[in-house]
Computed example of a mutant assay.
Amino acid sequence: MKVYVSPLGFDTSHVLSLIVKYGIEAGDGIIMLMSDTRDERADSAFTSVTEMVRTIDAGIAIRRVNLDHRDFSGMVLACIEAIKGTLHDTPGASIIVNLSGGPREILVALTIASLSHAPKIAQFTSYSDVSRQLSEIDLPYLTSPLRDRELAVLKDIQDFGPTSISDVAQRLQISESSASRYCARLLSDRLIDQTAQGKSKCASVRPSAAVVLSICKKA
């Protein structure tokens, strides 16, 4: 089960590109974030997407969320509620958030809202108006503060990764069990990826790691 969350303005390409890439079927859903300012072109775009989706299956849930572009904080909260509502109403669904298209104010609000729920979102995408291609992006996740040891492990993986956890432990002169525990925290915060390498695990950093390490870097 998939639920798409995307801004929608006058151009339907940003939303339709999601359907082309990932498909859509009964039980899936689309949440379109739009300005509450009535506009015939925006209404036409919503109708176009709705009619196209209905031809695929009438059981696909379609929801329009109207946002007040004059209330930025309200837009952020509304976007958060749209994501949280999906997590609550359709547990286990893969949420795909499109960070492109629609009014700029809504796009910025959705991006900020997505940062707060990045670990629970299956995929982020962005549709280029230049290349007309949909790309998958790895949105940095701003985690809660890390302890010094966790930061040291993260920095080591950034410097030497992909690397085994045993090598991390050896370089930092800590036990392998401690290194594994720190890596488990970093993995849960989506700062690193882990892959099997024989009987051991190999760690590599995700884009969020560079953001976190930059924030925590001492002047």
Rank of each mutant, 00 (worst) to 15 (best):
S177D: 15
S200W: 07
V3Q: 02
A61H: 05
K218C: 13
T12E: 14
T163A: 12
D138Y: 11
S200E: 15
T111W: 00
L191G: 02
L67G: 00
H88G: 08
A78S: 11
L172F: 05
Q158C: 10
P207L: 10
S204Q: 10
G9W: 00
S35T: 03
Q133P: 06
D156L: 06
L213K: 04
T55C: 07
L33Y: 03
V212L: 08
F160P: 01
A82M: 02
T86D: 01
I56G: 03
A210F: 08
D193H: 09
D138L: 13
D57F: 08
C216A: 14
I165D: 04
V108H: 00
G198H: 08
S208H: 00
L8Y: 03
S200F: 11
S135M: 14
S208M: 06
F10S: 06
L67A: 03
D148C: 09
R104Y: 09
S177Q: 15
V76C: 02
D189N: 11
V130E: 15
S144D: 15
S188M: 13
Q173M: 12
P140A: 07
V5R: 01
A109V: 01
D89T: 12
P207N: 13
L115G: 11
I174L: 07
Q123N: 13
R70V: 04
R132W: 12
S44K: 15
F72M: 09
R190M: 06
Y141H: 10
S200K: 14
V212C: 03
L8S: 05
V97T: 05
R132M: 13
R132T: 15
A179T: 04
G101Y: 02
R181E: 13
S44V: 08
P162N: 07
S164L: 11
V76W: 00
I174Q: 00
R206T: 11
S6L: 01
R181N: 14
M34P: 00
N98A: 06
P103K: 00
Q158I: 10
I106T: 01
D57A: 13
R171V: 04
S166R: 14
N98W: 04
G85I: 05
S175D: 13
M32V: 10
P103S: 06
I31H: 02
E51R: 10
C216T: 08
V3D: 02
L213Y: 08
S180I: 07
G198A: 08
A82W: 01
D89C: 09
S116F: 10
I96Y: 00
S135V: 14
A184I: 08
A78Y: 01
L77H: 05
K21D: 10
S131R: 14
I62G: 02
S6G: 09
S6Y: 04
L18N: 00
S177A: 15
A45D: 03
L146A: 10
T125E: 07
I24Y: 04
